[in-house]
Design a protein around this nucleic acid. Structure first.
Lengths: 213, 213
DNA sequence: GCAGAAATAGTCCATATGCACTATATGAGG
DNA sequence: CCTCATATAGTGCATATGGACTATTTCTGC
């Protein structure tokens, strides 16, 4: 059974930016084999819509106010919807991509992709394949190889990046400053950096922590 | 002389993302009083186009590969084009906004703005007013009040964020570690942070330094 | 149950950091 | 010419940091 205008791929667009919704609708709407069902502004709205319309492919923005892209994917799974998901985002960190793929996204697209690239990705994902750009796939593999920080280490990393000393961190967490020092040392070792300052900046670069939290 | 469909506001869209170009064209094209001249993918293309078409208002993405938004504004000034400029971006640091306004942008819009907001901004800017959202204007004012780092301090801040010690920085710059320490202390004081680590992370947050340089 | 990972806590020690000073040289602007 | 900002260099000191260890507890996977 091949795709045709008679049996189009039903696409749901989920993005909080009006410009992006209009852009995708306008670009993809020119393709005969696609049918844009709805452009939803949020993950909540998407779950609502998908229940009624039964989309084949969901184009999903990762960063949205309220329910994030990853949360939306998980919500879809919980509700038993098995539409295929393509993540669509502008600026991405390795952590973002990783968690989205972990959650069950089948494709990954950058917003600067051309119409041709998007059509290709949507068709690939709809036919059951995965679609992840080569360079991003490489980074993903590297990310999975990398020794991960434990949740405790991540917690301490966040506090350290806000300028807290080991003693202060220990006080907040109710553990000794010595223990914090141990954690900081293993953070430095795992990230292969030379001190806590570089640990903070590389963590931001890799998306392990964000600048505003 | 009032605006009408007979004498429309001529708009040039400059953005490297096909989706955004399509979205803006589709959204603004519905307005009778606007005429979309071209959607150019880069600053270079924009300078070319503006020479031929004479746009009234330029919607300009700040972050583009090649010629940045700020460079495009400066290029326009040098060439003597006096179209009014609205900056349009997704994620912005205070430094970005500041330099764009310094360069001569009259308006500032986030990409998650609604059609209504965009129309308002374009009309305001075209009629000679400035259009900068209240919260962004506040941040801009705060930014201008803030004591600036000297070029030496900025230089040291960059190295410090890469994990270099004062002694190492001194060695690279050919000055004593004591002097570097003095600079680091004034950086910490000016940024109102508690140590070098927080200095690095706040600098990234404010856009004083970037994560990949 | 046992191995291994993770979190906890500690010691020792060399070095780095942050802070409070003083002091000199230089260049820009009134 | 004088002043101010900047960059330079230094001293002294309390504290923080990073590295190398040992050791106990708890939890998870096999």
């Amino acid at each position: 059974m091949s795709q045709s205008a008679v049996n189009p791929i039903r696409i749901l667009i989920v993005d909080d930016h009006p410009v992006v919704r209009a852009g995708l609708t306008s670009m993809l709407g020119t393709q005969l084999e696609f049918e844009i069902i709805t452009a939803a502004p949020s993950g909540e709205a998407a779950l609502d819509t998908i229940a009624r319309s039964g989309a084949d492919v969901v184009l999903l923005d990762l960063r949205m106010p309220g329910m994030s892209g990853v949360e939306t994917i998980l919500g879809m799974k919980r509700a038993g919807y098995n539409a295929r998901v393509i993540i669509l985002t502008s600026f991405e960190t390795d952590e973002d991509i990783y968690s989205a793929v972990q959650a069950g996204a089948q494709g990954y697209l950058l917003k600067d992709t051309s119409l041709k690239g998007m059509v290709e990705a949507i068709k690939a994902v709809h036919s059951g394949k995965r679609f992840i750009p080569r360079d991003i796939a490489a980074r993903l593999a590297e990310r999975m190889m990398r020794t991960n920080l434990t949740s405790r280490e991540l917690e301490i990393l966040k506090m350290l990046s806000k300028g807290l000393t080991n003693k202060q961190i220990g006080h907040v967490l109710g553990i000794s400053g010595n223990t914090v020092k141990n954690h900081v040392n293993s953070i430095i070792e795992k990230l292969e950096v030379s001190d806590r300052t570089e640990a903070a900046t590389t963590a931001i670069q890799r998306g392990l922590i964000s600048v505003d939290e």
